[in-house]
């Protein structure tokens, strides 16, 4: 599913990964001085619209990912209402004997929406960027040494293998009569027993892959050609202009209404 989205050829998929990565940083910087809930709300709506219409991601799939994060965001509101640094004066209603103040709800809302915004902008990046393209772009445009770039790719391939192996180890241990771990002490003991075979396997695998890569003439240097160049295209220009207008516009609105 993820791979399918990453290369479905919509607008965002065609934008240079380096630019997209940079845009994630811009969002974070832009949001630092923002404390009202309206700016992150507006931004969040814009982001989700971008992901759905310019990234071709199905809304159902997107919201399914966002649900657990929404709980996380809601916890900000809760914390700000229950443990505010300064309890606001505009009391809306009481939960039991605890007053709920508008100011605290708004701060919580702002923080919660902000976290959701960061998450959805990261999703915009992750859901529309092929790992291989990201790696190539980082090497070609950001001076990342190929040694690390290709090393990261090799490691990325192993992630699903690790999960599989972890399941097998657990299964094998249960057969030995270990049963499900109960309590913290048991869990620590279990993780120790799982980690050793997992590490042993990982080191062996890493060594083999390294040998295989070197046998194919890889020496980690920049002295290599690229079959797939990750280009800068008009789409990057459009995306850049869009980002500029978005932030300029938001700043203008904020200057007028908020401050």
């Amino acid at each position: 599913m993820l791979e399918h989205y990453q290369k479905n050829g919509f607008f965002l998929q065609e934008v240079n990964p380096t630019l997209k990565l940079f845009s994630v940083l811009i969002v974070i910087f832009f949001m630092v001085p923002v404390f009202d809930p309206w700016t992150p709300l507006l931004m969040l709506i814009i982001t989700l619209t971008l992901i759905i219409f310019l990234g071709g991601i199905s809304p159902g799939f997107l919201f399914k990912i966002l649900i657990p994060f929404s709980f996380f965001a809601f916890s900000f509101i809760w914390i700000n209402v229950v443990f505010p640094s300064d309890r606001g004066d505009t009391v809306l209603f009481f939960i039991g004997s605890m007053p709920v103040a508008l100011e605290n709800v708004l701060t919580g809302l702002s923080l919660g929406l902000r976290s959701l915004l960061f998450i959805s902008w990261s999703l915009l990046f992750v859901l529309t960027t092929e790992p291989t393209k990201l790696m190539l772009s980082l090497i070609q445009h950001c001076k990342l040494p190929p040694r690390f770039g290709y090393g990261m790719m090799a490691a990325y391939r192993f992630l699903p293998l690790f999960r599989q192996e972890l399941e097998q180890i657990r299964a094998a241990h249960r057969i030995r009569g270990l049963g499900e771990p109960r309590g913290i002490k048991d869990k620590i003991r279990e993780s120790k027993m799982v980690i050793i075979p997992l590490m042993a396997g990982a080191i062996r695998k890493a060594e083999r892959v390294a040998i295989a890569m070197e046998s194919k003439g890889f020496d980690g240097s920049r002295e290599r050609t690229y079959y797939h160049a990750v280009p800068w295209t008009k789409k990057d220009m459009f995306f850049g202009i869009f980002l500029f207008i978005l932030y300029a516009g938001l700043t203008a609105i904020r200057v007028r209404f908020v401050i």
């Binding site: 291989t132 391939r157 695998k205 892959v209 194919k216 290599r224 690229y226 079959y227 797939h228």
Partner: peptide, 18 residues
Amino acid sequence: TQFCMLTVEDEIVFGLEN
């Protein structure tokens, strides 16, 4: 454990780029 890329094409290309 002898591949470092994700797709068939990229893997063959890897050696040639080297």
